[in-house]
């Protein structure tokens, strides 16, 4: 049994984000982090490893520096890492990304008692699409928004969170699950983990490695193979200055309340 976790390195959009004059993101000026929901997927896999001794493989698609992220996840306890990286893969939308990752997962090999885990969504695009699309390409059943899970033999019982409650869903392995932050609290790297992570196997899959898979077709990967294109990107205009009221006292509050009434806002 093994668990393959798909992870992504993302710009930290919670901090200061710099936008170039042409409306693109100034990535060079930004910190990168491991996508937060992916950390919950890694933690869920490592918990299962603690219980069953299964192997945990972390996979990412991205430029070579993403290797550092894979080493960090190995220091947390992942056994193997795979970096999927090639010029041909650049500019992929979610459809094309799922083609490539599905091909990489096939290369790793998915057996009967295996599980694929992803984070619900990445904070740079917030699409939540790549997980279900990988599942479709691999013909695996999916459960998304997993907030609790329990494995009994070959069956996983998941609490799938909805806006107005939840569903309890059971699914047999092999399957793909997408994880949300309510699932667990990710662990830290250990000193021993950091010491050992450099020795763990880390492979790179390039276009050459995967090109014989039917999913890796130049008509379905990369910028040219992506069904969606960016038509325009832009920044919203700054709003005109509002009215600043002086002092945090009773007079100020009375003044504000009467203005709101006067303007029929309340």
């Amino acid at each position: 049994m093994k668990i393959i976790v798909c992870v992504k390195q993302v710009p930290d959009t919670s901090g200061k984000v710099a936008v170039n004059p042409d409306g693109t993101l100034n990535r060079a000026s930004m910190q990168t982090i491991i996508n937060p929901d992916d950390m919950n997927a890694v933690e869920a896999a490592l918990k299962m490893k603690d219980e069953t001794g299964c192997r945990v493989i972390v996979v990412t698609m991205g430029p070579p520096p993403a290797m550092g992220m894979l080493r960090e996840l190995m220091a947390m306890g992942a056994d193997d890492g795979v970096l999927v990286s090639a010029r041909e893969f650049g500019g992929s939308d979610t459809y094309a990304t799922s083609q490539i990752l599905a091909a990489a997962l096939k290369k790793i090999g998915i057996e009967k008692d295996d599980i694929v885990m992803c984070g619900r969504q990445a904070i740079d695009g917030d699409t939540a699409q790549v997980g279900p699309q990988i599942a479709e390409k691999l013909g695996l059943p999916q459960v998304t928004y997993v907030g609790e899970m329990k494995k009994t033999g070959g069956t996983i019982t998941c609490k799938r969170i909805l806006e107005d409650g939840y569903m309890t869903i059971s699914v047999k392995t092999p399957c793909l699950l997408t994880c949300i932050k309510e699932l667990n609290a990710p662990r830290y790297m250990t000193v021993r983990g950091i010491f050992e992570c450099g020795q763990k196997p880390l492979e790179t899959y390039t276009y050459e490695t995967l090109k014989d898979d039917p999913l890796i077709d130049l008509a379905t990967i990369g910028l040219k193979g992506s069904p969606t294109n960016i038509f325009k990107s832009f920044t919203p205009p700054a709003k005109g200055a509002g009215m600043m009221l002086e002092g945090d006292d009773k007079d100020t509050c009375n003044k504000l309340a009467s203005m709101l009434i006067e303007k029929h806002i309340i």
Partner: peptide
């Protein structure tokens, strides 16, 4: 996109 820093129109 990018947490609201940018807007993108997709086709």
């Amino acid at each position: 996109a990018f947490g609201g820093h940018l807007m993108a129109t997709i086709i």
